[in-house]
Design a protein around this nucleic acid. Structure first.
Lengths: 119, 119
DNA sequence: CCAATACTAAGGTTTTTACCTAAGTAACAT
DNA sequence: ATGTTACTTAGGTAAAAACCTTAGTATTGG
């Protein structure tokens, strides 16, 4: 398969963590929010009814898989989206769909005949 | 935001479970395999070095979130892919990218105007 | 009928996740 | 200098996830 330079594959988050991160509604909402603009921890936390340390753990998960970056200036940490991992996940899904659709084309006739038979 | 009819949203698997299911490499490989053709439990399990009951649990997770369907004929249970949930996840990701790109455009405009001003 | 096949059920362990509270530290405003 | 703000650290609980083994139940081929 495709051999990726070690440094790149190490710095690029594995797709496991990306899907894992996106499986939580809180984290997805954070991503949706960061699509609009960068924001601080407390701005991000404000809509959620959750203790701050719990929320911050979500931010850490997002940063851990590379979906966001953060930097601290003074006492404020600002988060911003890093779209590459989203692209990675989207690509995997797109590939599955492409394969599926190719297969559907190949077997269209067969499927149609099966449905005829069902009646 | 978008209001979805209750019946639809209930029968359509929530995106949480889809991303969650896809976060496991075993389950992603099953999806990749099922893209080629339907297959039985043991066919699907064959490439994995894992006790069968453990593997079957993965299949249950996939079916639980709607990513696959199965039917039993005799003693053989056959699994097949159900692409709609994949589409759902892909759509969410695509939307994020669209928003992100729109924001980048806006930023470009902003930068351009700044540069105009400089002159 | 009987053994092999193809799953399935039951139950147990370890790790991870998602939350919490309480108590910090560092920066800023007054 | 002191209180308020903005996070951070530490630690603790409960539920879920990902494995395992052992012991089933149907089907089917000989």
């Amino acid at each position: 398969m495709t051999v990726v330079p070690r440094l790149l594959s190490a710095s690029q988050p594995p797709i496991d963590g990306i899907f894992r991160a996106l499986s939580d509604p809180t984290r997805r909402r954070v991503v949706e929010r960061l699509n609009r603009s960068p924001a601080s921890v407390s701005e991000l936390a404000q809509p959620f009814d959750m203790a701050l340390p719990s929320f911050i753990e979500h931010l850490r998960v997002l940063e851990g898989c590379g979906l966001v970056h953060s930097q601290k200036t003074g006492r404020i940490r600002t988060y911003q989206l890093a779209p590459e991992p989203l692209k990675l996940a989207e690509n995997w899904l797109a590939e599955q769909r492409a394969l599926w659709e190719r297969r559907l084309d190949q077997f269209d006739d067969y499927v149609l005949k099966l449905k005829e038979k069902d009646k």
